[in-house]
Each structure stands twice: as structure tokens, then as C-alpha cells.
Simulated assay, not measured.
Amino acid sequence: MQAGIGAVRGGLALGQVRSVKDAVRLAERVLLAGGQHRARINAWSAVCENRRHAADRVDDSAPTGARGAARQRV
């Protein structure tokens, strides 16, 4: 498949940049090899997933009775 001027592998062309996020992703696709770009996306997804799990652990660790008692003392 041959790309025309202004086209970038991954489906995002220069004319389709509508936000700063799109511009950053376009720059990454141009500057980084496909494997590096995919690795960055996978790493960020893992970070977000770890944050969700950590938030769930914090919510589950303290019993609701202890939270209520602490609020009553204040």
C-alpha cells in the first residue's frame, strides 16, 4: 500500500488533526517505529489498569464501620 503526501500509517492524516491529542499521536506515529508506538500505548494502558486496581484495594481495605466511626469523632 502506498501512501500519498500527508498520509501517515495508522489512518490519521494531517487533514484529520482535530485536537492536541491527535497532533501528539500523529507526531508519535511519524517519529517512532510501529513497535515503539504500540509499546508506549500498552505501557500506558498497564499504568491506568494498575491505578484502577490500587483504588479498588484502598476502597476495600477499610471497613465501612471504621470510616463511619472516624467521621463521628471529628
Rank of each mutant, 00 (worst) to 15 (best):
R9N: 07
A13F: 00
D60V: 03
H37C: 12
A55Y: 12
P63K: 07
G68Y: 07
Q16P: 13
A27C: 00
R51E: 09
R52I: 00
V47D: 01
W44N: 06
C48S: 01
L32I: 01
V30Y: 09
E28T: 00
C48M: 07
R57L: 05
G15T: 03
V24A: 08
Q2H: 11
V20L: 15
A13N: 03
G6K: 14
R71D: 13
G15M: 08
M1C: 12
G35F: 05
I5L: 15
R40N: 04
P63W: 02
C48G: 00
V30Q: 09
R73I: 15
R9L: 05
A39K: 02
E49Q: 13
G4I: 13
N50M: 04
L32P: 00
E49I: 06
G11P: 06
A43E: 02
G4S: 09
V8G: 04
I5W: 10
A62Q: 06
V24I: 15
R71G: 15
I5P: 03
V20Q: 12
R52P: 03
R73S: 13
V24W: 09
E49A: 10
V58T: 04
L26G: 12
A46S: 07
Q16L: 02
R29K: 07
R38T: 11
V24D: 08
V30H: 03
P63M: 03
L32V: 06
A54T: 00
A66Q: 09
A23Y: 12
R67D: 08
G10N: 07
A62M: 11
A7Y: 09
A33Y: 03
N50G: 03
G10F: 05
A7K: 11
A70M: 15
G4L: 13
A70G: 15
W44H: 10
A62T: 03
A54L: 00
L31T: 06
D60K: 05
L31W: 08
G35S: 06
A55F: 12
G11H: 08
V47R: 10
G4H: 09
G4A: 15
R67I: 15
G11E: 00
R71Q: 13
R52A: 01
Q16C: 01
G4T: 10
A7N: 12
T64M: 14
R18G: 14
